[in-house]
């Protein structure tokens, strides 16, 4: 008797052309100019970043363009010790929720140029861009965030964004 067949390999490779959509497209074009563009909701006036085209709580189109600051506050974070399959950052590295000044929801990004043990909730950070000549309409135009040497934000200033 030969060994039973317990598995077969069936490699699947599918390619997709994703549509960024109008809102994301404007945001990415902003990054190519070194600007961070969110969208404001006409009903609740909250600013969403990255823009989603709609206000997720009101369910209405949110097309008003609002430029937000490249500086913000770390609301919370984690230290990742598992090497990523797609990210070329040595472990450990810090992923943080960053509430940019002028936005009402945090974005998720890397904190670098700072000893890991010094990253904390409330830390003030700023975007580090690729050199001006390399700016493109991709997320990678912002390399990461780093401490901006401002005093920490008070807990109460961001607790409602946790």
């Amino acid at each position: 008797m030969s060994e039973p067949v317990t598995s077969i390999r069936r490699p699947v490779r599918l390619e997709y052309d994703f549509t960024a959509g109008r809102a994301m497209s404007r945001f990415l074009l902003g990054l190519a100019e070194g600007r961070i563009l969110g969208q404001g909701c006409p009903e609740c006036a909250r600013v969403y970043l990255p823009p989603r085209g709609t206000c997720p709580t009101c369910g209405v189109p949110a097309e008003e363009e609002v430029e937000v600051s490249p500086r913000g506050t770390v609301t919370t974070f984690c230290v990742v010790n598992i090497p990523s399959q797609v990210l070329v950052v040595p472990v450990p590295y810090v992923c943080a929720n960053i509430l940019l000044d002028g936005a009402d929801v945090p974005i998720f990004h890397l904190i670098q140029e700072c000893p890991i043990e010094e990253v904390r909730m409330g830390l003030r950070v700023e975007a580090v861009w690729v050199p001006a000549g390399e700016l493109k309409a991709t997320f990678e135009s912002i390399r990461h965030f780093r401490p901006s040497d401002e005093p920490d934000a008070a807990y109460d200033s961001y607790r409602e964004h946790l």
Binding site: A20, G21, G53, T54, V60
Partner: peptide
């Protein structure tokens, strides 16, 4: 090509 799924749906 212009709108993503959410933008088509809204």
């Amino acid at each position: 090509t212009e709108r993503n799924e959410v933008e088509m749906l809204t």
